[in-house]
């Protein structure tokens, strides 16, 4: 390190003043970030609280803002989350198990690793384009909830793999060695020693990945297009809409009432997200305590 810190030429008080100015700048930065978050939440709550009514939750969309609701979008979101979880969890956790427990250290493994982190950085709208041409047109799934779920699965797959790997990695080596010493083969070791310990961490990863999917609108816009849905999807081949798209639809209308409605929808979306994240945090805390024992 070639930096020279000259103690004699500048007085200590001046250097301390510079330090004080710097910490003030840092605090200002923290304050701006904090103010940003607060003004966002306050704005949403002020604009939206009077629109959070049973109508908003249980009604279908409507031209009349006071009767419009999120019901189709809410059910669509939950339906899609369920399907997405069914598709992603086996693949994501499977890939994580392979990379941590099975994979030999060779070029293929490191290629998969680099590829996974690259996939995590691909813009979500690109996944929408992929889903649109592969699932909607090529596999002829139309603009169905299944096409949407498959697209969303691809989007959250890299996130799930990364978090599951972290969870599996944090299982102490001694657990594996003990299981191998008892004569277990690789799969028995994974199933009986590694996965039970890694389970809370994997579950946290699943919840966080799904909560990302809930708020994601861009790829779903490409799949569903502009829809006016006044029914609840029943089969996986039905057309659907999700909450962020319904909110987007309301935001893009010029009338103030619909802006208020959008804020009401955002409140419900944030409540859903916040409760999912709290579950994840609670699980994580429990998990951390246990591993310290």
């Amino acid at each position: 390190m070639s930096t020279k810190i000259d103690i004699n030429s500048s007085s200590l008080s001046r250097r301390k003043l510079i330090g004080f100015l710097f910490i003030s700048f840092c605090l200002l930065g923290v304050l701006v970030a904090f103010m940003g978050l607060m003004s966002l939440l306050v704005q949403v709550i002020i604009q939206g609280y009077e629109w959070v009514t049973p109508n908003l939750i249980f009604n279908y969309p409507s031209r009349h803002p006071e009767q419009a609701g999120l019901w189709a979008a809410l059910i669509g979101t939950l339906y899609m989350m369920g399907l997405t979880a069914l598709i992603t969890v086996p693949v994501g956790v499977g890939a994580a198990i392979y990379l941590e427990e099975y994979a030999p250290k060779n070029w293929f493994t490191s290629f998969v690793e680099i590829n996974t982190s690259n996939l995590a950085g691909v813009p979500s709208i690109v996944y929408g384009l992929l889903g649109l041409s592969i699932f909607v047109y090529f596999l002829k799934l139309e603009r169905s909830i299944l096409a949407g779920s498959l697209t969303m699965s691809l989007l959250i797959l890299p996130v799930l793999i990364l978090t599951s790997r972290e969870a599996i990695k944090s299982v102490p080596k001694a657990h594996r060695e003990a299981a191998f010493a008892l004569g277990g083969d690789r799969w028995q070791v994974v199933r009986m020693a590694v996965l039970p310990t890694a389970f809370p961490g994997i579950l946290t990863g699943i919840i966080l990945a799904l909560s990302r999917a809930i708020g994601e609108a861009a790829p779903m816009v490409a799949i569903t297009a502009l829809v006016y849905i006044t029914f609840v999807p029943v089969t996986p081949m039905d057309r659907f809409t999700v909450m962020p798209i319904q909110i987007f639809n309301w935001v893009s209308r010029p009338q103030d009432e619909f802006r208020g409605l959008a804020a009401g929808g955002i409140i419900i979306l944030l409540i859903l997200l916040l409760s999912m994240n709290s579950i994840a945090v609670i699980l994580r805390n429990k998990y951390q305590v246990r591993s310290e024992e």
Partner: peptide
């Protein structure tokens, strides 16, 4: 047990392979 192990090994390996398939299909598409 041996067969089960082999089958599972194949399954998790192909799960990892799917990630590469996704990249290929993004680029190809």
């Amino acid at each position: 047990v041996k067969i089960e192990g082999k089958v599972i090994g194949f399954l998790v390996g192909s799960a990892a392979f799917i990630t590469i398939l996704v990249t290929i299909s993004i680029v190809w598409n």
